[in-house]
């Protein structure tokens, strides 16, 4: 009997991927196990579904191309997250450059886009939270998302962002305080 993606261990997936005959099956299991987490991680960064779809596809293709070089020095999922994070940041930077070139106000556009996004059905509080998140520097936003929404240990976030646990704690604390202030300033609390 074949194991399902959630039952199979990372080592088993990697063993399948190392063999040319089982590469496709191994990669399919890897996607089934991790693609949803990667998608939500990217979606929180880029906001819109269509953009997240493009970025997650590029991420998975990059993973496929380089998975055989994975040396196992870090956890598989933190390695996957690192690729997804880099892809998302690259996408955001390109979008910013485009917005600058066309004189659009990218920052104010995101919350407007969210309100008009057919794949966003958040209430007033969620919209306020997303607006507050927009105001954070990119790294603080990443740290906040991974800690608050994904409840990731600092050690894993440190592996993904290649930084120290101390720096991450400081970033998270700053982010939480700023978001709380933004929510209070909106007069809802």
């Amino acid at each position: 009997m074949q194991s399902t993606a959630n039952e199979i261990t990372d080592n088993e997936i990697l063993s399948l991927i190392q063999e040319a005959t089982s590469l496709e099956r191994g990669f399919k299991l890897l996607m089934q196990k991790y693609q949803e987490r990667l998608y939500w991680h990217i979606r929180r960064m880029v906001y819109e579904h269509d953009d997240a779809n493009d970025v997650v596809q590029n991420t998975l293709i990059k993973i496929y191309r380089s998975i055989q070089k994975f040396e196992g020095k870090s956890k598989l999922y933190t390695w996957l997250y690192r690729i997804a994070t880099n892809e998302a940041i690259t996408f955001i930077n390109k979008r910013k450059r485009k917005a600058t070139a066309s004189l659009d106000d990218e920052e104010s556009g995101v919350s407007t886009q969210l309100a008009a996004d057919p794949y966003f059905d958040g209430d007033q509080v969620q919209l306020l939270l997303q607006k507050a998140l927009e105001t954070l520097p990119e790294k603080q936003r990443l740290v906040f998302n991974m800690r608050y929404y994904e409840e990731m240990p600092y050690k894993d976030i440190a592996e993904i962002l290649e930084t120290s646990v101390g720096a991450l704690k400081a970033s998270y604390h700053h982010a939480v305080k700023k978001i709380e202030s933004s929510l209070r300033a909106a007069d809802n609390y």
Binding site: R44, H49, D121, G122, D123, Q126, L129, I179, L183
Partner: peptide, 14 residues
């Protein structure tokens, strides 16, 4: 304040 909020984001997929 943040710890009391429901951790729902409102994002959907097709």
């Amino acid at each position: 304040l943040l710890s009391k909020l429901e951790k729902r984001e409102g994002f959907q997929v097709p």
